[in-house]
């Protein structure tokens, strides 16, 4: 991977040498202040060498809207594909979101209205999940 020297990326889940995804992605720092750490070998611990795949941003972006992982929007190029199915709305109606009385900033009010409409169409069964995802991506990319 280009960029940082391979030995030094601070990616907690990359410290494991196994190439497989470790069991835990989130490693919460221990908050126990009574840990006895007299045997610490130095304060600076270089992370183990990890073969980080190139274009981590690209891989994350493919699961997100293009806006988020890398901020260079002018180079965003092709819009990211629709987000994965996790964004499919649940069986129950989307009343919770639709019921909120929005006071959004001026620029976002149109998009918000469109998204709410879209959600109602989906929960009414008038759109497939794929269509919903497509339209949502289109609305948010404007």
């Amino acid at each position: 991977m280009v960029g940082y020297p391979p030995a030094t990326l601070w990616l907690p889940w990359m410290r494991l040498s196994a190439p497989d995804r470790p069991q835990r992605f989130l490693v919460t720092e221990p908050r126990d202040e009574t840990d006895d750490k007299e045997s610490i070998v130095g304060l600076l611990k270089t992370a183990a060498t990890a073969a980080v795949a190139s274009s981590v941003h690209g891989r994350v972006q493919r699961r997100q809207q293009a806006r988020w992982a890398a901020q260079d929007q002018s180079a965003a190029g092709v819009p990211a594909p629709a987000p994965p199915a996790q964004y499919a709305t649940p069986a129950q109606p989307q009343q919770t979101y639709a019921d909120s009385t929005p006071a959004p900033p001026a620029g976002a009010s149109d998009r918000l209205a469109q998204l709410k409409q879209l959600g109602e169409l989906l929960s009414a069964g008038l759109l497939t999940t794929a269509e919903f995802e497509q339209e949502k991506a289109r609305i948010l990319s404007v």
Binding site: Q23, R24, F25, L26, V60, R63, Q64, Q65, R67, W68, A69, A80, P83, P84, Q86, Y87, A88, T89, P90, Q92, Q94, T96, Y97, D99, S100, T101, P102, A103, P104, P105, A108, R111, L112, L115, G119, K136, A137, L140
Partner: peptide, 27 residues
């Protein structure tokens, strides 16, 4: 999902739609 729970009026979660990359697993 953001669409699944009540969101106060002043929280613009529409801006965050698409931020999820689904990396967290059950553990």
């Amino acid at each position: 999902d953001v669409w699944q729970f009540a969101v106060p009026a002043d929280v613009d979660l529409a801006a965050w739609a698409g931020a999820s990359s689904g990396l967290l697993d059950d553990s």
